[in-house]
Design a protein around this nucleic acid. Structure first.
Lengths: 191, 191, 191, 191
DNA sequence: GATGAATGAGGCTTCATTCAT
DNA sequence: CATGAATGAAGCCTCATTCAT
């Protein structure tokens, strides 16, 4: 007997509507209708709109995090780990453009504006993976001796920007381009 | 010929409120009150909320654009021009954090989501400056042979990410760090 | 034969919440939670909110009534009986302030507004005790020759008013003050 | 040009509906409709339902207060002043039963439960008139030496109780009965 | 008897906008 | 140009109640 699927219907509807129309223009009533539930049911599961929005963000974050951890090449050298993470992120968001749009909105709205790591990579788990990576790289003198936040931005800033272009249809990110871009990011951070 | 005082009061109030609270949480009534005008006056100057928002966006864009063009080193070599542009952008947004927040929201909302250059650099003018720069660099084999959109992302993605961190207080972008970051971006795009 | 535990939990929760917050601000869900039962259980015992409210009123009324009848001095003269009733009412409500607040609300709401004796003394039993007392007093020319309703008000109006003040902390009704007040009420009704 | 009569339309509608149906069962939409205004207009004048309710209470209080002060017999002896006040209160509420019902509900709901002087006589002005009266009476040894709150209750408790009975049709308060009742109240408080 | 997810009518309020002055 | 009372559609959420387990 599966755990209430009304709840996940709501989440899916919210994801689609908010990603496509924005927080403002995705009224509760619209989400409710798309989810095929009663309004009371919505509020039975999510106390209010803010909580729905935040909860949905957390769920997406967790999914991404799990994806990245899944095949993380613990054994490979630093460069290999870096390439793995960036490539998987590219793939994930190309495959799940709604997740990208949702998170981008979240981070650029008052909901997420004050979140640390507004890099579409918020899970403590992932965050630490990258921090460890960067710190290790600095110590080993493989990476530039810059604040970790700067390395983050150099590595992930272009990714965010490009995925948006790809979703909007301004670029076509194929595997070759992903690889080349990742290499360019590596050039930015490496010594 | 000074534009109406009331009008600029409205724009300033809108900038502050929207930057800090988001479009969805900055109702006309609130902007009206903060601006110290009557609601009728507001609609006298701006036909509706969308127009206010767009108008404000255009004004900010024009300011940034003017700033960048002002001291543009037409004579210097490509690398020097690139460093100039990136550095001035950093400086501008550090000096005008509300402009950054406003534009970031604009680009990540349905208002601006479909704008071509969602890189806080939307003006045709600037846009062309950078396009020319990149195309010239590719031809001269100074820059990597990548789509211009990718070079854009490599150059401006980190900037956006870092300025947000700086505004949020997660990094402190001083001139040294700005220079180092710009160099790293150059490493990313140069051959 | 003890009535279901759940049932009395519900009644106690309803008493407390309604007395303190009013009918309109004591939703079923809140009573349900405070009672520690499931919503289905609530409706198992009380068909709907109105019935719960009325049922609770009846229960309180019966308790007060029983208290008054318990030591009623059948033998003592009229004045003694009157003093007994007033004193016991004072004592009861001072000891059970929530009962007072509940009943006060009940009588002043559409639920009880049309009840004959809106004097916190609704039971036929008690009602008749007082009616008999007053009618006897009139006949014996001990009490003023006024409509019974007027005697009621002269005797119980001050009581209601004072108990509220006491519960609110504006007066401190000790035994001395109770006695003095009762005497004053007697002055009001006696010839 | 009269001051907005929309506002007073709203107040009148609220008075009638709430007095007759109770706070719960007088939804804003119903008041709005009866007042013949748009919902926005309602909220233009009254921030929310609570404020409407409180504001209405204050207005009624002020009206009563003004009525009592109007012909207050400053020159007459204490007893005459007392009779004047009680009689005028009787008359006022008999003439304005909706005011009585509204205030009774207000005092017995969480809105007014914590108000001092829940004696349908809340204005500082009036309140002081009665306090002065009682204190003077105590000093002059005309009245019983009881706390002022007790004298209040003895004087006004019966009035409240009787007016309700009158409005409900259980008694018919004519001038004779008013006079007799007032005399009984005087008996209660006088030495 | 007991549970709690689900329901949906309806309540309160917001908010962009209009219009008479 | 400026004012601010008025508008009403629409948004968010509550709440008594039901029903399958």
């Amino acid at each position: 007997m599966r755990k209430s699927n009304k709840r996940s219907n709501v989440m899916q509807a919210a994801l689609e509507l908010i990603a496509e129309r924005g927080f403002h223009d995705a009224p509760m009533a619209m989400i409710i209708e798309k989810a095929g539930v009663a309004s009371g049911t919505m509020y039975h599961h999510f106390e209010n709109k803010d909580i729905l929005i935040t909860e949905l963000y957390r769920e997406l974050e967790e999914k991404i995090s799990a994806t990245l951890r899944e095949g993380y090449p613990v054994e490979r050298p630093l460069r290999g780990k870096f390439f793995y993470l960036i490539r998987e992120l590219f793939r994930y968001f190309i495959k799940n453009p709604l997740h990208f749009r949702y998170m981008a909105q979240y981070f650029n709205s008052p909901y997420g504006i004050s979140l640390r790591r507004d890099r579409l990579l918020g899970t403590p788990g992932n965050h630490e993976i990258l921090i460890d990576l960067f710190e290790e790289g600095i110590t080993q003198q493989i990476l530039k001796n810059l604040p970790v936040a700067v390395l983050f931005s150099l590595a992930l800033g272009p990714l965010i920007s490009l995925i948006r272009d790809h979703i909007q249809g301004f670029v076509n990110l194929d595997e070759t381009l992903i690889k080349q871009t990742t290499e360019a990011c590596w050039d930015a951070i490496k010594r």
